[in-house]
Design a protein around this nucleic acid. Structure first.
Length: 433
DNA sequence: TACGAGTCAATAGG
DNA sequence: CCTATTGACTCGTA
């Protein structure tokens, strides 16, 4: 079984002492590569914090500004985003987000006309419901645009999204238009580039998402937008990553996708705004179609340091920098910890054996590797989360399957004894090593 | 308090 | 300049 497989490849054997009195020991002779044996309390990487001297936490060292809600992004926007999470549902969506369709060229113009893509494509889809797909009628689309002010459709939380396809679709669109992840992540999702990258590469099935659904909804909504608005969103709502730790879901309330009701906001552009020509390079000056979108051209650089006022569609409801804590001091940054090869290999090896080492064991491991117990805890926490493959079946992500995986992932309670039952798991942890 | 989820954001790799 | 990786932070739950 897996247990066997893992043991065969595990370069390290973890010996867990039965008693807390005698902490678990790692057998030095089995250390990866057989290099450097463990020396209790040795600072393997020279970064060991003296015992008893707890390194200041980020929180301590870097007073971070309360995170601006996704709204964050617009932290610097003078408007206050108070709107509800609504979005104008345009009709030029994709008939399908099947992987196949994803490579279809989607010129600015075609965005409006390519509605009826073989409806049949839905069939080939997995049990997972297809991504929500607005009407496909062109006229409807145009009408929608003309009446967008009123046609704001509330996106229901119940709407299911095929995250995998969505991710592929988004990836495709970003590539197609050479839209950097950082730009899309920041302006449309109010998220960091790294987060976007991770979401696109490892999308969790909708059924397993919690608050994280919000981010996918934004992607989805963006995809639903007409070319013009999509581009506008990318160019306008700027989010000079205010870097505030903790920007989590709670900050997403008013993010993108919600036409804000800010005073003085210009009326949304009416159907006249097809992108004039090929999508501009995000770094190059962009020219808005004649109309309400003023304050252009803007270069990316300019955008980064500029707070547009008339943002029509996507307004990252980020708080204004000033509101956040203008008095915040450029906190001394704690250098990012990077495990030494030995530390990483050892931790991974142990993880293979024990997904949930006991607190005691974690402390011991920490000592052995010259790491903080918290660091070790974080490692296992992250490892557990990242090792479990959300999609067992790439082609047929189904809710049923998801549920299975779910229960599969959450059936353990931390304890030394549980280590032996780990073989019950079919942990796809191969990539960890 | 411990965990998990969602992320940030530094930084490794190209 | 970009994307991928990943240690750690914040917040919600149990």
């Amino acid at each position: 079984m897996d247990e066997t497989r893992m043991r065969e490849r595990a370069p390290l054997t973890v010996i867990v002492a039965p008693s807390h009195a005698s902490p678990p020991r790692l057998s030095p002779d089995l250390l990866p590569d057989g290099d450097a044996a463990f020396h209790p309390l040795a600072a393997v990487n020279g970064r060991l914090t003296p015992p008893g001297l707890e390194p200041a936490s980020y929180a301590t060292l870097t007073p971070l500004l309360p995170l601006p809600p996704i709204s964050t992004v617009s932290d610097k926007f003078a408007y206050h985003a108070g709107g509800t999470f609504t979005v104008i549902q345009h009709q030029q969506s994709y008939a399908s987000l099947s992987p196949n369709a994803y490579n279809e060229p989607l010129s600015p113009q075609s965005a409006y006309s390519r509605r009826s893509v073989s409806p049949g494509s839905y069939e080939r889809r997995s049990p997972t419901p297809p991504l929500p797909s607005p009407g496909l009628d062109l006229n409807a689309a145009l009408l929608a645009r003309e009446e967008q002010a009123q046609q704001q459709v509330q996106v229901h939380d119940t709407e299911e999204i095929n995250t995998k396809e969505l991710a592929q679709r988004i990836s495709g669109e970003l590539k197609r238009y050479s839209i950097p992840q950082a730009i899309f992540a920041q302006r449309v999702l109010c998220r960091s580039q790294g987060t976007l990258s991770d979401l696109l590469r490892n999308p969790k099935p909708w059924s397993k998402l919690k608050s994280g659904r919000e981010t996918f909804r934004r992607m989805w909504k963006w995809l639903q937008e007409p070319e013009f608005q999509r581009m506008s969103a990318l160019r306008l709502a700027d989010t000079p990553q205010q870097t505030i730790k903790g920007d989590n879901v709670n900050n997403m309330q008013q993010s993108y996708c919600a036409p804000r009701d800010y005073p003085g906001a210009p009326p949304p552009p009416q159907g006249s705004g097809l992108y004039p020509g090929p999508p501009p390079h995000w770094d190059a000056p962009v020219y808005e179609p004649a109309g309400d979108m003023s304050c252009f051209p803007l270069s990316q650089r300019a955008i980064r340091n500029f707070v547009p006022i008339n943002v029509y569609f996507i307004i990252a409801g980020c708080k204004r920098k000033e509101d956040i804590a203008s008095d915040t001091m450029p906190s001394p940054k704690k250098p990012r910890l990077v495990f030494t090869d030995l530390q990483r290999r050892t931790l991974q090896a142990i993880f293979k054996e024990t997904k949930r080492p006991s607190k005691e064991m974690q402390v011991t491991i920490a000592r052995q590797l010259g790491l903080e117990p918290t660091t070790v805890g974080n490692f296992f926490m992250n490892a557990r989360r990242r090792s479990m493959d959300k999609w067992k079946d790439d082609d047929a992500p189904s809710t049923e399957l998801d549920q299975q995986c779910e229960s599969h992932d959450l059936d353990h309670v931390p304890s030394l004894d549980s280590a032996d039952s780990e073989e019950d798991h079919d942990d796809p942890d191969d990539h960890l090593l």
